[in-house]
């Protein structure tokens, strides 16, 4: 019971960190400090946090452009993440990527991709390497329901199934692809039905409970790690904010959004914590820690030096000093 409480408190803190990070990012965007596109993950935090809890540091994670939450759940510092949004030199991609292109391989995060679908094949490539090198690592790829109609998704999933790659495909079905509900773009609403065509296992569940996310994704990760091949998981979720900051959200009613907010993963977890005997003060103390961290991240980003021209120019091509390893060694 105590262990469960501590674990759940940790999950709550991780989710709260993402929530507060993004609320401040939205504020920075409104002030004109952050430009371009900003796609918020608010409402879906239970998935990034629950999924990351099932992974090891050297596992591979790929995400779409809605990538802040997943990167932070993997361990990207909020300082480096916020500095990236501000287009600053100490940003996680040194100001070259922006909101949609966080990269943090040191923390097992292999990117946010603006062109959805193709990244499923990239994730399958990491899984291919894992299998070829017998690493015992797992590649996890996140994508929205909107990505399941594009060829890149299909080809990546199909090859992952064909070669029984150690991969978990996590569809975060947040109900709307930009402004279009899935029912208007796909003849089949249950995405996991596609798994049969790819010869892989599947699972489908509601994503507001971080504990359930962790347990169900954990099973798929274990299957992949033990050589059982990939799983296609569809998690039903909901984003509370617009597709991006420029989305007025006219495709849904405010009642619908309010109704869904009753199942806000943070609220749900808070209730669970209370039933485990967690006091209001305990939670508040934790929230205060996060508040401090996020305030520090914002200040760090504000004060950080700008992105550098020389870094941009020098990072178009990698230096070619590759020397083969001795024969027979990995």
């Amino acid at each position: 019971m105590a262990a469960q409480k501590d674990t759940l408190l940790a999950r709550y803190k991780d989710m709260f960190r993402i929530r507060r990070f993004e609320e401040e990012a939205a504020r920075g965007y409104a002030k004109g400090k952050i430009g371009g596109f900003l796609h918020l993950y608010i409402g879906q935090e239970s998935i990034a946090v629950g999924a990351s809890a099932t992974l090891k540091p050297d596992d591979y994670v790929f995400q779409t452009y809605r990538d802040h939450g997943t990167a932070i759940a993997r361990g990207t510092s909020t300082r480096a993440a916020m500095a990236e949004l501000y287009g600053k030199d100490p940003g996680i991609s040194r100001g070259l990527g922006g909101s949609m292109h966080f990269f943090d391989p040191a923390n097992g995060f292999y990117g946010g991709y603006g062109i959805i679908g193709g990244h499923v094949a990239l994730a399958a490539g990491a899984a291919f390497k894992s299998k070829y090198k017998k690493e015992g690592t797992v590649s996890m790829c996140f994508f929205g329901e909107g990505a399941t109609n594009i060829g890149g998704f299909h080809e990546g999933a199909s090859l992952a199934g064909l070669w029984k790659l150690p991969m978990v495909l996590v569809c975060e079905n947040n109900t709307y692809a930009m402004g279009t509900p899935f029912s208007r773009t796909s003849p089949v609403e249950d995405i996991t039905k596609k798994a049969a065509g790819y010869g892989m296992a599947s699972d489908r569940f509601d994503g507001h409970d971080v504990q359930e996310v962790e347990a169900r994704i954990g099973a798929a990760v274990e299957l992949a790690r033990s050589g059982g091949g990939p799983t296609l998981i569809e998690i039903l979720t909901y984003r509370f904010r617009g597709h991006s900051m420029s989305d007025p959200g006219k495709y849904r009613t405010s009642q619908e959004v309010e109704e869904r907010k009753k199942r806000d993963p943070l609220k749900v977890t808070k209730t669970q914590l209370e039933s485990l005997g967690c006091s209001e003060d305990e939670i508040l103390a934790l929230e205060n820690q996060v508040e401090e961290e996020i305030a520090d991240a914002v200040q760090f980003a504000e004060e950080a030096p700008p992105a550098r021209h020389d870094v941009m120019e020098r990072s178009v091509y990698a230096p070619s000093n590759y020397v083969y390893p001795p024969v027979g060694q990995p």
Binding site: Y60, F62, Y110, G118, H119, V120, A121, L122, A123, A124, G125, A126, A127, F128, K129, S130, Y132, K133, S139, G151, G152, E155, G156, S158, L159, L162, Y322
Partner: peptide, 27 residues
């Protein structure tokens, strides 16, 4: 066949798999 891999007719798929594998250390 682990190193010389026949693929289906799926250029976007296997080009992507190659890129993903290159990102994490294969050539």
């Amino acid at each position: 066949s682990d190193r010389v891999v026949d693929t289906p007719i799926a250029e976007a798929g296997f080009a992507g798999i190659g890129i993903g594998a290159a990102m994490v250390g294969l050539r």
